[in-house]
Amino acid sequence: MTVQWHQVLDRALAENAVVRVGDAVAQHLGRTPTRSEITAARRAAHRYVAAGQAQEATLSAVVGGQARHVLVLARPDVDLQDVSALRRSLAQRVRTLDKPQGQGTKATARRAETLLTQVSQSARAGRLLPLAQIEPAHARLLAQDLTEAVADLAVLAADLTRRSRQTDTTIRTEPPARQSPGT
């Protein structure tokens, strides 16, 4: 299935004034993008800029312990000359790039990362909701349900924090020695 990267970038810019193209791609896919996916998204970003719908900048950054040039898109009203402000805008997203991918039990770690992506997307989408259009009684019920869900997420965060502080307790043991048939 072909991805319409300009639509992905449009949604990303609707949620944030400044986005890294690679972050928008990874967030959309829910996984680390391939080189061809990043290339296609970069080309779409350049077309998006050429159409006057966004601005672009290239910043130097350390991603995964390596120095890289990162393509950044910004809304037309953002001041791209203020590099320190751009870096601050992107700082919260760098944290997710520096996370080890799939460490531990790979399937479980990936599920947790996907869950985090979904929660983050939901939080950003929630900030865009026109709350005045929700009936007060319905808003009360939604608030109660959300409070319960957030409490469950807080428990998950505490469990993950506790797990992150544990040392690797895996003990390597030698396989049992083979016994001869006569013993």
Rank of each mutant, 00 (worst) to 15 (best):
Q133R: 06
E113M: 08
V155K: 09
T39V: 07
D79T: 06
D77I: 04
V3D: 09
A67H: 08
L90W: 03
Y48W: 10
A154M: 09
A139Q: 13
D79S: 12
G22D: 11
D168C: 12
T96K: 06
A157Q: 13
E148W: 00
T114D: 13
Q81T: 11
D10C: 07
A143G: 10
L73R: 04
A17I: 02
T105H: 09
L142D: 09
L29W: 01
A157S: 10
R42S: 14
Q118C: 10
P175R: 07
R75M: 04
L9P: 02
G30R: 06
P176S: 13
Q133H: 07
Q4T: 07
A17T: 07
R124P: 01
A125E: 15
P175T: 08
A44W: 02
E148R: 06
A158P: 01
D23H: 05
S180D: 13
T161L: 11
L90T: 06
V18C: 05
Q53P: 01
L146Q: 11
H138Y: 08
R110Q: 11
R88T: 11
R95A: 15
P176F: 00
S89D: 13
L141V: 11
A26L: 05
Q133L: 13
A45P: 05
T34H: 05
V155Y: 00
R87L: 08
T173C: 07
D145Y: 03
P136E: 14
V18K: 03
R31D: 09
P76R: 04
T32P: 00
R20M: 09
R95K: 07
T39F: 01
R11Y: 06
Q7L: 13
R178N: 09
T2E: 14
T173I: 07
R88A: 10
T167K: 03
H6S: 14
Q166K: 09
Q179L: 10
A125F: 00
W5Q: 09
D23F: 02
V19H: 02
E113S: 15
V70M: 10
R43F: 02
A44F: 01
L59R: 04
S89M: 12
Q81L: 11
P136K: 11
R124Q: 14
P176E: 14
L71W: 00
W5N: 08
H138V: 15
Q66R: 11
A61T: 08
V94S: 09
P176I: 04
L97P: 00
A151T: 12
A143T: 14
S164Y: 03
A85Q: 13
M1Q: 11
L71F: 00
Q121P: 01
P176L: 08
A112N: 07
R163L: 11
